[in-house]
Structures are given as C-alpha cells and as structure tokens.
Amino acid sequence: MLYIPCPHCGLRNENEFHYGAEAGVAYPDPNELSDSEWAEYLHIRANPKGWLAERWVHFAGCGKWFNLWRNTVTHEIGPAYLPFTKQPKAPQEGSEK
C-alpha cells in the first residue's frame, strides 16, 4: 500500500489511485507517423529499474491526474507534479537503500 502524495489532496493510500504508466508521452500527430512509430506510441512505455516519472490519477479523491517520481526498485516516492508543468529532477540514485 504505497503512500502517494496527491498534489491536491495530500498523502493518501495507494488504493485511492489508478496507475497510468510513464508520464510525459504526448499524443503525437498520428498522420505524421509511420506504422512502427505509431505502434511505439500505442504500446511502448518506459519500464526502468530505478526512478520513473509516471502518471497516477486520484480516482477516489479529487479525480485529478498528476505525475510522480517513484523508484521501481525501492518503492521510494519522489516529488509529484502537475501535468504540463516543468518536470522536477529525478531524485538522487543514492537515496536508494
């Protein structure tokens, strides 16, 4: 049960949220893309070991989407930020246990 900082509501339990995978994947102009580029947009999302900027939506709270740095190895939570705002830097790798 992760403890997730909703930028609007504060810290809430994970089961109030839905996950939205990698953050910052903008909808491309579909007509500019080859089939394989379009397939990449459709299906490929970052899946790193370590810090990942990802999307969450506080569906059982304010209903708002936001982005969050989270470490996929330690489950440490980094800063949350709103869509279309400047992405904060990834937390230090050294902060892993």
């Binding site: 839905h18 939205g20 903008a26 909808y27 999307r55 939506v57 569906f59 989407w65 869509p83 279309f84």
Partner: peptide, 13 residues
C-alpha cells in the same frame, strides 16, 4: 468517465 478525464486532463489542456 475515466477515459474522458484522462484525455481532458493529460492531453487536452
């Protein structure tokens, strides 16, 4: 509803 919100909030500011 979740789909509409996702498109509104994350793609259509």
């Amino acid at each position: 509803l979740a789909w509409l919100e996702e498109w509104l909030q994350t793609e259509s500011p």
